[in-house]
Amino acid sequence: MRLLRILVRRVLHAIPVLLLVSLGAFGLLYLIPGDPAYTLAGGENSTPESIAAVRKEFNLDDPFFQQFGRWLWNAIHFDFGRSLQNNLPVRTQILQRIPETLSIATGAILIATVVGLLLGIISGTRAGTVVDRLISAISVGAIAIPSFVLAILLVRVFAIELEWLPAVSYVPLSESAVGWLKSIILPSIALSALGVGGLSRQLRSSLVGTLRSDFVRTTWTLGGSRWQAVGKHALRNAAGPAVATLGASLAFLIGGTVIIEQIFAINGVGSLMFSAATTADLPLLRGLMIWFALVQLAAYLLTDIALVLLNPRIEVG
């Protein structure tokens, strides 16, 4: 009931946000230098006929709100028009690309959660030791290193020198489970670095705090074990900020797919974004902006749900 109330609030809150994102996506048109119809029709390759066709297709002669209204109406029905490059519906293209992106994103989230959790617990319970300092240094490095730089290093070491894992060529899960796993390991690691560093760092500092809290002292005075004090009470109460940090790093993870997919030649939504940008494919760019916003809002929503489940005190907020 509590969860439902909060969910409804958050979804309602997302509506004006999505409306503004739509306005932004639609407004990309006005950033095109010169006459947008000329550019969209192919620039130097355009003909008066093709320019006229573009004008008609994009309703460029209509008043602004009529244009936006029509585009928005279609967008609500997940109709973002057709790509300028291959004339395929934008929606179809995006949907086709999801499995590959989902594979590496899931891998990255898993790695970030498991490794970040482990490192955070180890350093948080051993604050001040050499191990803690080592892990803190690793975390700082993991946060600072750009994902594509890490990707390149991974390719060099594991694909080129050791030849353990492929650098390119994604294998679908339906084809070979092992091949799929091998093909997503390096991109997943590259994407996960920020999450690993962020989570481990946040969890460490939260744990240091909760281990000194009054309720953990209560656990000790009742004859509680190390497991009860650390694993149950300290960790459970440190989990909130850690989950929030992990949620915030999802935004970077999602954005990172653009460049990581490019490096590992993965045909996901990220590569689609890249090719849309290089070809100035306006309908595709618009559709992708909405898509990425939806994914990120969904990620935030999931984070909020986790936070609500973790903290019995959250009522509204």
Partner: peptide, 24 residues
């Protein structure tokens, strides 16, 4: 705050790419 929420609901790199995509 609403505008900020909207602006930050798109990953930074994606937003930058979209803008460069149309600007060149």
């Amino acid at each position: 705050m609403r505008i900020l929420d909207a602006a930050t609901s798109i990953p930074g790199l994606v937003a930058a790419l979209a803008i460069i995509g149309v600007l060149g």
